[in-house]
Simulated scan of single mutants.
Amino acid sequence: MSLYSFGLEPLSCHAWNKDGTQIAVSPNNNVVIIYEKKGKEWNKIHELSEHSGRITGIDWAPESNRIVTCAADRNAYVWTLKDGTWKPTLVLVRINRAATCVKWSPLENKFALGSGARIISVCYFEKENDWWLSKHIKKAIRSTVLSLDWHPNNILLAAGSADLYCRVFSAYIKDIEAKPGPTAWGAKMPFGELLLEHKDCGGWVHSVSFSPSGDQLAWVAHNSSVTVADATNGKEATQLTTEYLPLVSVLYVSPTELVAAGHDCCPYRFTYKVPGALEFVKKLDIPKQTSKGSISAMQHFKNLDNKATEDARNEMTTLHQNSIIQLRVISGERDKVEKYSSVGLDGAMVLWEFKH
């Protein structure tokens, strides 16, 4: 694991290029900054500044090398690198509330965008008019869409929202792709078809993640729980409520292993090996034992401010000194992730290696 700081501003979202040599981050404002790794240093090489509102989502398509961004200004842009400069193309997302999250599909021929308008916009490129269009999934969603993830088949789309529900929809667009075959989630898949609707998630659903096979779906909610729904087990959901502060990001790193992180400033490892058996494995940020005296005075008072207590046991010994906002895969296949990253409210990024 290695720690790098991009300054004092919180990092609200980030994305990696294909080989993990460049990272796009937003320091909680309307700009995306792209850094490139040279040796041990990260050097700023581009700044994307078309948005007028705070950026809420970034995703970088590895094969086509396109970046999609969305923001509180209700807009989304697809960025293409031409002659050393990133050029934006406006997407017709047709929403009247802030965009909240965005995700490329596995084949990179479309992307999904969540928003406060209780809508998921599935966007695709129309060659005739040379622009990005969107189709809306509105059915059943009763509050802000907070998180999205694509099934490996490029058709199904999972969504977590602030109405305490987790859902799986079909995002099949017949104009651009072949008719999909049946999956464990269902066989009929017209656009917008609802294939899973799990209520009682226990809180806002902050993050969703399909397993490498697509047969399981994991999500984390604001009641500090991790849940896995298993399509091979009648879509039965297994919930594990942890003793930690709420988790806000979850990733599948192997067919049976999950990593989740959030307000405890530390990633945790979970396993789901047989239907109905979701277990906590371990904390992944093992701090070095430090005495109170070895922490700088500045850090000591910062910790007191964070925890509002003088109890020495509450000194922050984790690499992140504030909430982790997002986890991202850097390298490895979907079923065997080798490296992943975390960014947080402390302006820091940590690179983690996953030992299988």
Rank of each mutant, 00 (worst) to 15 (best):
K188S: 12
L90G: 09
K339N: 14
K135T: 09
K179P: 03
K199P: 10
Y272H: 12
I286T: 15
V250L: 06
V329P: 05
F270P: 11
F354G: 07
K82Y: 08
Q216F: 04
N43Q: 14
E36G: 10
I330R: 15
Y4T: 15
A112Q: 10
I286Y: 07
A98R: 15
L113Y: 01
E310D: 09
S225Y: 02
N75I: 00
W352H: 12
G276I: 00
L217N: 09
Y268P: 00
P267I: 12
K355N: 10
V220M: 01
G114N: 08
A15L: 09
C70T: 13
G114F: 04
A218G: 09
V68E: 15
R94S: 13
P190I: 04
C166D: 02
E243C: 08
S2R: 13
A71N: 11
S294A: 02
N153W: 02
T144H: 04
P255C: 07
S249W: 00
A71R: 12
I58T: 15
Y268I: 00
T21S: 15
A187V: 08
T227R: 08
W132D: 02
D149A: 07
K339R: 15
A187I: 04
V250Q: 05
T309D: 05
Y340R: 06
V343L: 11
G344N: 08
M189H: 09
V31I: 15
P275Q: 10
C70W: 04
W204C: 10
S213D: 12
T21F: 07
E310F: 03
E128T: 14
Q22P: 02
D230I: 01
C166N: 04
H206N: 11
I141E: 06
P275C: 05
W185G: 09
F210N: 09
I55M: 13
P62C: 12
V205T: 09
T241W: 04
L319M: 10
P27I: 00
A117H: 08
S147T: 06
I325F: 06
D59Q: 14
H198K: 13
R118T: 15
L345V: 10
E36P: 04
A72K: 15
I155Y: 01
A237D: 00
D19C: 14
V91A: 05
P62Y: 08
C166L: 02
L157A: 13
G332N: 13
G186V: 10
A297D: 03
A297G: 01
W16N: 12
Y165W: 03
W79E: 06
Y252N: 14
K292W: 03
I295R: 06
G7S: 01
A231Y: 00
S341K: 03
L92R: 13
V343T: 14
N154K: 12
E315N: 14
K288C: 03
